[in-house]
Design a protein around this nucleic acid. Structure first.
Lengths: 231, 231
DNA sequence: AAAAGACTTCAAGAATCTGTCAAGAAACCG
DNA sequence: CGGTTTCTTGACAGATTCTTGAAGTCTTTT
């Protein structure tokens, strides 16, 4: 069957559950397994799954955090599966970037139906999680930034800005868009934060650009915002 | 906020439930209502909702059938809401094209979270308005202007004018329309600004036209305004 | 053909926006 | 708690853009 090319990553720390899901889905899909959050994150990169089924109760990391980390670089559909039935858990997971939330126990039929929904949708094109140009390489999945093969140390804020730029490489991001994505929608339209943004971009350039005074990667669009050059 | 432009169509035959949902969602979204399947189908056309919340138990038509009919022409996210808790109902609805399935009773928080998920997804792939003619390419989504493949540096004002022209390519834009869209309605009818407009158009031509003295793209309609040639 | 009106071009000062440095405050980590 | 990193803020120089005036060009009208 050609369908077997579709890969599903099952993340759950309990082996019996993994085996159960493997048995349920294995007939139609290729099933990858991960038992911890770290494992899930790395397998999401290496295994290139088409759907991720994620249990919230992991030993090393909360499932919501895993979701958040994944969403930094990919739109792979995430179906959260958990014994937690409280509404607040569902909301937190969904707002963190999950596409669906099933409460255990659930029927296999419903799960596969929701997997089909996720697959049906993911015909859409996906942004590249890796940006490369000349000596600069940004890998959003690994959270790596290399300049001439050397790791570059970025502060969280700097990385957030760079991630935004990479996710919209080639497009102009307005000051407001950048500020909102980094400091929240609360503080948009504030001159203070415009300045903050400029300082951070300046720092970014100093760390990334060969010649910060004549930017090669992060170019200014006067009066508007910044853009990551692709060409 | 302008966010109220997002429209949600609530389909349920019970008025109390419609009122409840309207109250729950009305603060953030514009809520449209339909009580029957037929009404839902016609409102999906006329109301152009961004999300549809659909009850399965309608008097004239089964909700699954409504879903199927909608999917014949649109990908508007459909969140099914039903008292039916059997797995087969869920599977049928999801496979018919629904994006999500909630069993009544449900929490408002969860519903709005799932609405956000649906909106988040459909917000992603936006149509890119692009204008191309000969050597000139204007990409409004990227805010890019290329002349013979080379990026052209436009000032914010110049870009605003060009954007207006592209958005109404082929049509004549009066001086007043252009001035109003760029400097606000306050200063329309002012001779000062008419001049300003001319200066900016002149600069635009110098940057875009092969021969600024004989405009190929931005042509003057004497006494009226300017027009972007499409042919 | 001259005149009037409309449009275009050029140039320079004013206003605004942007980049950089540096130092104190705050947060983080062991 | 001490040390380190990161964040925030202010000041200032530099660059870009906006605005305005004057002069030149084109078109239409008389």
């Amino acid at each position: 069957m050609a369908e077997t090319l579709i890969r599903i990553l099952v993340v759950d720390d309990e082996r019996p559950i993994r085996r159960f899901l493997n048995a349920s889905l294995g007939g139609q899909y290729t099933v990858l397994e991960a038992a911890t959050g770290e494992e899930a994150l790395s397998m999401a990169v290496s295994g290139r799954p088409d759907v991720i089924i994620l249990d919230l109760g992991l030993p090393d990391m909360d499932g919501v955090e895993v979701t958040r980390r994944l969403r930094e670089w990919t739109q792979i559909p995430i179906i959260v599966v958990s014994v937690r039935d409280q509404e607040e858990n569902k909301i937190a997971a969904l707002d963190a970037g999950a596409d669906d939330y099933l409460t255990k126990p659930f029927g296999v039929g419903e799960l596969t139906a929701r997997v089909r929904v996720a697959l049906r949708r993911s015909a859409a094109p996906e942004a590249e999680p890796v940006f490369q140009k000349d000596d600069l390489l940004v890998d959003l999945a690994k959270r790596n930034v290399l300049k001439q093969g050397q790791a570059v140390n970025l502060t969280p804020t700097e990385y957030d800005i760079l991630r935004m730029l990479v996710q919209h490489a080639g497009k102009v991001l307005t000051h407001e868009q950048l500020i909102r994505s980094i400091w929240g929608s609360a503080s948009a339209g504030d001159e203070e934060d415009s300045h903050l943004l400029r300082v951070n971009v300046s720092n970014l350039r100093r760390k990334l650009e060969p010649d910060p005074s004549r930017p090669h990667f992060i170019v200014t669009e006067p009066g508007v915002g910044y853009r990551l050059k692709t060409t």
